[in-house]
């Protein structure tokens, strides 16, 4: 693929390198759950819903978080895949979500209770994992689960000396872009909780590049955090 990534300082969808796509948030979309949220960023849309906190299988057992990551098979903008369940990437993400959120959720408040997190990717246009993390945070807040802080996430990449924020599908699959670099931070302290990177172009990351794209992604996280708080406030006031 030899598509233009940057054209006179603008990206394929008309954004500046440091600009996020439009974010839409909807709470309470799944009726039979304790909490649910739909997070849309550009054409990417991810649904997350929570069951619990509920009694663990065996009494006296300490509680855990379980994550179930699913992709609707019509979601991909590339080739249609039959199922994503149980493949390496989603298994890895489920494990990451578990460890990430066990450090953010105050499990000692519900010591013998499990929390089930279900994630469903409805449309995939890049930065799916970041959207999923944001959706999970929102649905946990909607369910009233005690959280230390927001966990917000944003992706970034690097193209010809320029860091890009919030990559689309075509940007993250381009061989010319160093991508997809995903960062999740705590909303207030901006401590990094998650950092992941997979590149298909075979680029080498230098310390300078890492520094730049991490800073860019954290900047994006700050913006996402601000938008999420605002949307939650709006959802509660009416």
């Amino acid at each position: 693929m030899t598509e233009e990534i940057l054209f006179y300082g603008f990206r394929q969808d008309g954004r500046r390198p440091g600009e996020l796509r439009q974010i839409k948030i909807k709470l309470g979309v799944v009726d039979n759950s304790s909490g649910s949220a739909l997070f849309q960023i550009g054409h990417t849309s991810v649904l997350a819903f929570i069951h619990g906190p509920k009694q663990t299988k065996h009494e006296k057992e300490s509680g855990h978080i379980h994550c179930y990551f699913n992709t609707a098979y019509f979601s991909s903008s590339g080739e249609r895949r039959k199922f994503s369940k149980g493949d390496k990437k989603s298994n890895e993400f489920e494990a990451n979500v578990r460890t990430m959120f066990e450090s953010v959720v105050l499990m000692e408040n519900n010591p013998h209770s499990d929390i089930d997190i279900h994630v469903l990717v409805l449309a995939d246009d890049g930065s799916v994992e970041c959207a999923a993390i944001n959706a999970i945070t929102l649905s946990l807040i909607h369910a009233g689960v005690p959280l230390k802080d927001f966990l917000v996430s944003c992706s970034s990449g690097f193209y010809s000396g320029m860091p890009l924020i919030d990559l689309t599908y075509s940007e993250s699959t381009s061989f010319q872009v160093i991508s997809e670099y995903r960062v999740a931070v705590l909303g207030k302290s901006l401590q990094i909780a998650y950092l992941n990177y997979d590149d298909i172009g075979g680029h080498k990351l230098t310390p300078e590049v890492v520094r730049e794209i991490t800073a860019m992604a954290i900047e994006g996280c700050k913006q996402v955090h601000f938008i999420m708080k605002q949307e939650l406030q709006n959802a509660c006031s009416n």
Binding site: G35, A143, G144, V145, L147, C236
Partner: peptide
């Protein structure tokens, strides 16, 4: 003192609480 849920704060003598909007 930091909130851990979404809700409205209330104070009982010296005790600071946050009443969650939702939850079990």
């Amino acid at each position: 003192i930091v909130s851990n849920v979404m809700g409205y704060p209330a104070m009982y003598n010296r005790l600071v609480c946050v009443n969650s909007l939702r939850g079990c």
